[in-house]
Design a protein around this nucleic acid. Structure first.
Lengths: 161, 161
DNA sequence: CACATTAGTTAGCATAGCTAACTATATTTT
DNA sequence: AAAATATAGTTAGCTATGCTAACTAATGTG
């Protein structure tokens, strides 16, 4: 895990394309906050018995429907051989079902099984409940600000890649 | 990577300790936003030539000063054998310096070398600059809200573990 | 001094990432 | 239609990160 890295070195606006000098400082702390958040939440996933790459690929299938191996690899930003092994592991645990594509024998059609859906939803439930139990310490005003910030980020990500 | 998972199932306030029903929804989206953010920013680290575990351990040393192997393992929430290999890798790349503790020959004193400090700062620079270049699309108002939210999270984390 | 505790290492296992080289099927070109 | 090319996945083999169990070495403690 990254260390706290509280204080970034002072940005020098004259040598940087950013028009506003505080953007770097906010980027810095946002980065640090995201690391801290996930570091804490991820520990809940151990209870599912599956590793993070498998859980993540499974979530693509559960929320996005049937995919080929190549589509899954692209969605996860991973190379095909890597996804090949992840898929093999998920199949061994009976969390996905693989069938042949009738149009193109090279392709595989991958779907989550009901067991896969169940496992993912329970894991998600655990993570979110854990995070929510801590957010519960915040005041309603703080919570509202957090909600707004998340919406801003969501919008930003849509225009990112 | 986790899929988007936009819409959480409606929370049932009667069956959950949360007094406010929207806490779960905010937790859900905050979690998703953190995943998306780090997924994007982490790719900048490839340029350092070191893996994430080594960079993270190195950052603890750079920002926290000398540590023993056990202290590093605790800071990274990792078991000693894991940290043992991470430290070996960092030493091989001359990013850290290991000396014996004169008081206790079992302990090792680990510090970042100037090469280590340089590498970490450059990597950090890259990550933050990349993130900042995207945050630059936001309005000053949005940026300010983001800054507030980060402060709220920071405060929350301090009272977390 | 004998025994227990503590700090790190070694061995061995699993997951997860990569590239290079392969097989099998489709598509395109000649 | 045959040959060449392109595409989908797999296999083999490397590195890095995580773990537990079992070990060595040094320190404390009775």
């Amino acid at each position: 895990m990254m260390a706290d890295e509280k204080s970034a070195p002072k940005p020098d606006p004259s040598s940087h394309p950013d028009s506003r000098p505080d953007v770097l400082a906010i980027a810095d702390r946002l980065h640090s906050a995201a690391i801290h958040l996930l570091r804490r939440v991820r520990k809940q996933d151990v209870a599912t018995g599956e590793g993070p790459a498998r859980l993540s690929a499974l979530s693509v299938l559960v929320f996005g429907g049937a995919k080929t191996l190549g589509e899954l690899a692209a969605a996860e930003q991973v190379k095909p051989p890597t996804m090949s092994r992840i898929v093999a592991g998920l199949a061994r645990s009976r969390l996905i079902q693989i069938t042949a594509d009738p149009r193109d024998a090279r392709r595989m059609r991958i779907v989550a099984t009901s067991k896969g859906v169940r496992l993912l939803q329970q894991g998600r439930q655990r993570r979110i409940a854990y995070l929510a139990s801590h957010l519960d310490r915040l005041t309603p005003e703080e919570l509202a600000k957090l909600g707004e910030a998340v919406e801003i980020l969501k919008k930003l990500f849509e225009a990112w890649l």
